[in-house]
């Protein structure tokens, strides 16, 4: 194996090790955290420098594999429960207090899935047209469009589901869809 790539893997593994040690400390250590994340980033950078995206992918897998081993160790050495746990109550979700609102949920589903996808597609078409106008090649603009749809939809779905009102949801969908207009007008 390429020595430099190996160095990248070792750096990434070192990063995981330092983070594990940092989190084991009783107090937060900014230096240790920075060191851990820094080593992880350095490992990925080395991987990318030596072998491009392939190198980054391989170094990331090695780091995740070490983290999985450490996690397995944490699971195996976890102390046994001291008795019956208290019946925890998570106040974050107040499901019991919520009325069923089946119509509202169907509408939310439609807004997030149908509306969200349509708005993401509209945004994508608009951004692609903008990229072409900026001088991007058709290959780059079309490939970016393929990647933009799921990214935009997932972010929009998050925003829509975290938005409090239908009005705010409608505004989010409208804002996302706006870039389609110039594309439709110019046909690009």
């Amino acid at each position: 194996m390429d020595g430099t790539l190996l160095a990248g893997m070792v750096a990434a593994m070192g990063g995981i090790g330092v983070l594990r040690w940092s989190w084991w400390l009783g107090h937060r250590s900014r230096a240790a955290n920075l060191g851990g994340w820094g080593l992880l980033l350095a490992g990925c950078w080395i991987g990318g420098w030596v072998a491009g995206a392939w190198g980054v992918a391989v170094v990331s897998l090695v780091a995740m594999a070490l983290a999985a081993v450490l996690l397995g160790w944490a699971a195996a050495t976890a102390p046994a429960a001291r008795g019956k746990a208290a019946d925890r109550r998570n106040k974050a979700l107040s499901l019991a207090a919520e009325p069923p609102r089946p119509g509202g949920r169907v509408l939310t589903f439609a807004v997030v899935v149908v509306g969200g996808f349509a708005a993401a597609l509209a945004l994508t078409i608009g951004l692609r047209a903008g990229a072409i106008a900026l001088g991007w090649s058709a290959a780059n603009a079309n490939a970016a469009a393929l990647m933009c749809v799921p990214l935009a939809w997932s972010v929009l779905a998050t925003v829509l589901l975290m938005t409090r009102s239908r009005r705010a949801q409608a505004i989010a969908l409208a804002v996302c869809s706006l870039p389609l207009l110039p594309a439709l007008i110019t046909g690009s």
């Binding site: 983070l19 594990r20 084991w24 937060r28 450490l70 996690l71 944490a74 746990a85």
Partner: peptide
């Protein structure tokens, strides 16, 4: 912050949430 905290033998949903 809790990335290595795994209370795998806890009950009350703690272990499952941690996993």
């Amino acid at each position: 912050r809790d990335a290595f905290r795994l209370r795998s033998r806890s009950t009350g949903g703690v272990a499952l949430a941690d996993w």
